[in-house]
């Protein structure tokens, strides 16, 4: 009885979210996978089980190759850019900049904006007009005498997705800064002092003391940014709509379901997105479970 009193309230409190997650996350994941393995290529047919056919056939579609390439470029630029910029900002803050609180707030603010609002503003900033017709960033470059840097931004067929990652970096680097700042502050002063006493230069303190201690924070940031990046949809649609030139798997999924009316294809793409996020998240989960076990 007393034992029940200990775990029952907790379970009761958690049960709504357990039920909701069981149905709306795992239930839907299972349903999606089931649809992906049928030939339900329109909304009317019931769909027969076809195994992994859809997963294989998707690779025959040129658009799928484009969207995967785009997702890779976007992820590399976005995750790399946000990590570097966030780290740099946190580093400068940590060096004791004056008015730190103000700067912190300024860099964090973009995070409070939705990707849709960000996208609409950046769509204008990244207007493709050059020369006399330049507006937005191209006009800014022109004004700075850097007119030769003007380009088509996200409409460039080769490097457009790198441009598309810029608003995402702008929005999320403040968040990464917050993570790193917490990490910096978490490094005990005693360790730094001990290293300095032993004659380590300031650079060596960072290289051998602070950076290794920041590894868990970096990993968390990597996971958070990585899964945002692989699922990105709202930003792309707000900037460019559902065009092939800026296609990513999530946008392709939308087109497959709502324009092509092909549920099986949409579900297959969704399954690939989940799979790619899993590649990021599962090693992290294993790592953190192991660490917790080691610490306890």
């Amino acid at each position: 009885m007393t034992r029940m009193r200990r775990w029952l309230p907790g379970l009761l409190l958690l049960s709504p979210s357990i039920a909701a997650i069981a149905i709306f996350v795992y239930g839907m994941l299972g349903w999606n996978l089931q649809v992906a393995m049928t030939d339900r290529h329109d909304e009317i047919s019931e769909g027969r089980f076809v195994g992994l056919t859809n997963f294989v056939q998707l690779w025959d579609q040129p658009r799928w190759h484009i969207s995967v390439e785009h997702a890779v470029v976007f992820t590399l630029v976005f995750v790399g850019g946000a990590l570097l910029l966030g780290w740099l900002l946190a580093f400068l803050m940590e060096r004791g900049i004056r008015g730190e609180g103000t700067f912190r707030a300024i860099y964090l603010f973009p995070m409070a904006i939705s990707f849709v609002a960000t996208g609409i503003v950046w769509r204008w900033l990244m207007n493709a007009g050059t020369g006399e017709r330049a507006v937005g960033l191209n006009a800014l470059l022109d004004g700075l005498g850097l007119g030769f840097l003007q380009w088509q931004w996200f409409r460039d067929p080769d490097w457009g997705m790198a441009a598309m990652a810029i608003p995402a970096v702008w929005q999320m680097s403040g968040y990464v800064m917050a993570l790193f700042l917490a990490g910096f502050r978490g490094v005990p002063d005693e360790l730094r002092e001990a290293a300095r006493v032993d004659g380590a230069s300031e650079w060596k303190v960072y290289r051998h003391i602070v950076l290794p201690l920041l590894r868990p924070v970096t990993l968390s940031a990597l996971i958070i940014l990585g899964h945002i990046s692989l699922k990105v949809f709202d930003l792309i649609v707000a900037v460019a709509g559902t065009q092939v030139v800026t296609d990513v798997p999530a946008v392709f999924m939308w087109v497959a379901v709502f324009d092509s009316h092909d549920p099986a294809k949409g579900a297959t793409i969704a399954a690939y997105i989940v799979l790619s996020v899993t590649v990021f998240v599962v090693p992290y989960l294993i790592w953190s479970v192991r660490r917790e076990r080691r610490e306890s």
Binding site: P62, R63, I66, P157, Q243, V244, V245, D247, V255, D259, S260, H261
Partner: peptide, 11 residues
């Protein structure tokens, strides 16, 4: 949708 995709790829 297929025509739009073809035109997008052509672009």
């Amino acid at each position: 949708a297929a025509i739009n995709e073809a035109v997008g790829l052509f672009q």
